[in-house]
Amino acid sequence: MTDTQIDNSECSVIGYEEEIETITDVIKRIGSGALEHIAIISEPMGGRTTLVHEIQRLYKDRVYYFPLEFVITQSKIPDFRALSEDIILIDNCQFLATWKIGGFDLCNHFLNLLISSKKLFVTTWNLFSWQSLSQVLHLDAYFPKILLLNKMDTPVLKQVILSKYKKEEIRFLDDGATERSMFYSKIHKDVSLPFYKEKISIPWIKLNFSLIFWQAPRKNRVQISVEDVIFEKINRIARGNPGVGILLWEEAFKRREISIGSIPEYAYFISLDINESFILFIILSMECIHEIDLKDVAGSEIDIAQTLYRLVQQDLVIETNGYYRISPFALGPVIDYLKKNRRLW
């Protein structure tokens, strides 16, 4: 098999240059020693699929792409040995296992296929599913290369979003709310002096303590433009999740304009019983799951219809054609809540 030469400068995704380089290196080493199967892990909407599409684009002919969109059965898994491609790219591998008795058989079958295969497997996993499955199936032992997609920094997120537009297509508006969101602002104070009748205006630095404590500014940051404050706010709400950040941008960006006041900020007061938090964990770790599969996981002890109703009522979960997923803007609060209750191991 000819080794396709890939120049890293061809990489068209922003923020994943290092990951692409690592994957490229592993692919270059195919045929020279043991295979290093790759697991790409991230939160929901954390950029896994973007990375996978980039690998697909870079290695078109060598890649067999097998995206999973819901829980599957063993019969749906193709015979990888019969394929001509030497790179098997499987997106959303969390669908290989379900949280029920007998729900790990397919994943075990897949892992056995993987270790006996001569092809390179590049797989993507939901972070929370990976963490849980690692505790029970020791997933990390099967993947010598584990790429955890970290939270995105504000400048990178800004670059990702702005790359979709031309410069003149966006107007960043200062709607007065900007000042409140800056770490400090320069103001002028009127001061009365004992020896001078008139009040004088002196420049003054007003610190925004709440923002300073929540998010310390980076070194050498002196001036923050409206544009930067807007992206800082987007990334603060999105908690470094690029998918959520892009959705927030799309919500706020209307008629080619965006202001800090137009960025929606949602508040969630989560109060759940043990069944609800368990089902919420299942939805979070699967990312998208059908009610029938949820019923299987819940068993007879949980009234799944009532539980889902409660989760939807609290805007934590959204339903589309019987499939349930975490509401994008509730992602951060849901993760915090489940961590607090030690539901995420």
Partner: peptide
Amino acid sequence: KILKEALITSKYVIIS
């Protein structure tokens, strides 16, 4: 196997 999977898929368990 059944008991193991009943344990690890319980809504009450913590594993690490």
